[in-house]
């Protein structure tokens, strides 16, 4: 019962939303977008999309500059 977040193994929790997962693992960047098993999750859905067991998650943050 684990998931993978940016290559790191994290315990899976039933019914955990993206927002809660990010908070639990200390990803506090204000600007992230997330892919769960290759689907892009828009930020507006972070509050209600839950993480499935064994999910492979990529959390990417955007840094200002260009």
């Amino acid at each position: 019962m684990t998931i993978e977040v940016n290559g790191r193994t994290v315990e899976w929790k039933n019914n955990e939303t993206v927002t809660r997962l990010l908070k639990r693992i200390g990803y506090v960047f204000p600007l992230v977008f997330v892919k769960i098993n290759d689907s892009v999750i828009p930020r507006k859905d972070f509050l209600h999309v839950t993480i499935p067991d064994k999910a492979v998650i990529k959390v990417i943050h955007m840094i200002s500059g260009g």
């Binding site: 204000p30 992230v32 828009p42 943050h61 955007m62 840094i63 200002s64 260009g66």
Partner: peptide, 13 residues
Amino acid sequence: GLDNAETKATFIE
């Protein structure tokens, strides 16, 4: 080629 992080994230999305 955007500058601001918020705009970048929104654009990509």
